[in-house]
């Protein structure tokens, strides 16, 4: 949960300095990067590592079992792509907003903002969820994986490579959400059928019509043939 003791005492409107971040995150982050929203790379962490169900990093709640937050900004620790980040956010901030605005990780797209297009798909632990309908504070204590965390600086996730190989994109705006949805499917089912893939992305909207190639790319990684 959000850290009520405020171990990262930034002023509410101040961006966290790189020094407040763990070493593993530093290489990918500069203050300029934050401000320009340049996007954070995975900072060399392997994001397909084992992901725990619930992190023990949750702050201890107050003794009566209630932790009071907000309505003003509160410091919150988010575990994103293998690195810890502290952000100052209001409780109403969605995970998508925290990622995109506070952390400058703009790979996650917001399209419908109502949980019906899955453009904003990220993983909470390894489960794909809509970050537009998740409050950032509800991501505390979980491992958040974003599209930026799926690849490292020099190596794409096999599915990302397959998306490129099969031209499974046009304008590219739905692509991060599609990749996160299909990659999550492969995590829990390494050999999906096309039927499985269609169902796994049945909440993801693409307006350019890249679906056939998304199916093909995912099937390619799954190592199964179209009619399997």
């Amino acid at each position: 949960m959000p850290d009520p003791k405020g171990s990262h005492p930034q002023a509410p409107d101040e961006q966290p300095e790189p020094s407040t971040l763990p070493d593993s995150a530093r290489s990918g982050i500069t203050r300029r990067g934050f401000l320009k929203g340049a996007g954070l790379t995975a900072a060399g962490t392997a994001l397909l590592d084992g992901v725990q169900a619930f992190s023990s990093e949750t702050a201890a709640p107050a003794t009566n079992g209630v932790t009071e937050l907000g309505p003003g900004p509160v410091p919150v620790r988010l575990h994103v792509n293998g690195a810890e980040h502290t952000v100052e956010i209001e409780p109403r901030t969605t995970l998508a907003e925290a990622l995109r605005i506070n952390l400058g990780m703009t790979g996650t797209k917001v399209v419908c903002d109502r949980g019906v297009c899955s453009g904003c798909t990220v993983w909470l632990d390894k489960m794909p969820v809509n970050s537009c309908m998740t409050l950032a504070i509800d991501a505390v204590g979980h491992h958040v994986t974003t599209i930026e965390g799926l690849s490292s600086e020099d190596r794409m996730h096999p599915l990302q490579a397959a998306f490129v190989k099969h031209d499974a994109m046009q304008c590219g705006f739905c692509t991060p959400g599609m990749v996160m949805s299909c990659a999550a499917l492969l995590e829990r089912n390494p050999h999906p059928s096309e039927h499985d893939i269609r169902h796994a992305v049945s909440g993801n909207l693409c307006r350019c019509g890249t679906y056939p190639k998304i199916f093909a790319a995912t099937m390619d990684v799954a190592g199964t043939t179209r009619n399997a």
């Binding site: 401000l35 320009k36 929203g37 340049a38 996007g39 995109r100 605005i101 400058g104 990780m105 703009t106 790979g107 996650t108 797209k109 917001v110 974003t146 599209i147 930026e148 799926l150 690849s151 794409m156 990302q160 490579a161 998306f163 490129v164 499974a168 994109m169 590219g172 705006f173 692509t175 991060p176 990749v179």
Partner: peptide, 13 residues
């Protein structure tokens, strides 16, 4: 596009 590095107008800060 596949890695989320592509920066769209709505991503500009």
């Amino acid at each position: 596009k596949a890695t989320g590095r592509a920066r769209y107008t709505s991503d500009i800060q």
